[in-house]
Computed example of a mutant assay.
Amino acid sequence: MDLSDLPEIVPGALYPIAPEGLADASDDGHAPRILLLYGSLREVSYSRKAVEESARILQALGCETRIFDPSGLPLTDDADADHPKVAELRELAVWSEGMVWSSPERHGAMTGIMKLQIDWLPLSLKGGIRTTQGKTLAVMQVSGGSQSFNAVNQMRILGRWMRMVTIPNQSSIPKAWLEFAEGDRLPDGPFYRRIVDVMEELVKFTYMVRGRKDYLVDRYSERVENVDQVHERVSVKA
């Protein structure tokens, strides 16, 4: 998979996004780490092609990207968390500072493959490691027919449930089989430019959020629970 080239663009219109003015003062300015998930195992997968196009754009914007291949991922509750594919997915989620979720719309909803990946991501792991909380998210969908937003709307709900900062912009590509008719690439046009818009916004939000993530997800209810647990331990020792 070649992620090195981009469609011909207007010179100066696409450029790396700098953290200055966006990131926290303590941010070291490293390349944003973005994990991309797609929701189809078909040999010709348009949600995967949309993710690959997004990864090219993200790299041009100065990001480091990883694409997870969901093939072989077991059903939830049908395997342990130490299953190799589950472990790989969770390690990538921990590594990431932002995510892109790209799903086909099937029967008016996101696919089971897309939901399966999200279901394997816990809100937190041992040691207080949060796989999704406070991280950024962009949602995208592809359709075989007319334009729809059912899948992205569902993924927005999941993003909120996973306590992610889901950016306002999104992408929906209708009749994806026509848009990708020439092969694996999405040609320049309104749908390609929308994906660029979405990825630019994701990078900006990631810079703004990543250094402030712990503060943004700090919650009163959890602080109360921590105080109660300390009191219980002190009472037991006494």
Rank of each mutant, 00 (worst) to 15 (best):
L121K: 01
V139W: 02
A151E: 10
N150A: 15
R106G: 09
G112D: 08
A151H: 04
K126E: 15
S146L: 12
N150Y: 12
Q147R: 14
V152N: 09
L123T: 11
G134H: 04
I113V: 15
G145Q: 13
G144T: 05
M114N: 06
R130M: 14
N150D: 02
W120P: 05
G128Q: 08
L137T: 05
V139S: 03
H107T: 05
W120D: 09
Q133Y: 05
W120Y: 01
A151K: 07
I118S: 11
K135P: 06
G127A: 08
S146G: 13
M114C: 05
G108Y: 04
Q117C: 14
K115S: 11
M114G: 08
S143Q: 15
H107R: 13
L123P: 12
K126Q: 14
G127M: 02
Q133F: 11
G108A: 07
R130F: 02
A151R: 06
V139N: 08
K115P: 04
T136S: 15
F149L: 12
L137I: 00
T131E: 02
G134L: 03
K135Q: 04
Q133D: 12
R106I: 13
Q141W: 01
L116S: 10
L116A: 15
V142T: 15
V139K: 10
D119Y: 03
W120E: 00
G108C: 10
S124Y: 07
S148W: 01
T111S: 13
F149A: 10
M110P: 08
T132N: 03
H107S: 14
Q117T: 01
D119W: 02
M110V: 13
G127H: 03
A151V: 07
T132G: 05
K135L: 06
F149T: 00
N150Q: 12
T136P: 08
G108W: 07
M110Q: 04
N150H: 13
T136W: 05
G145K: 02
T111Y: 04
G145W: 02
N150L: 13
I129D: 07
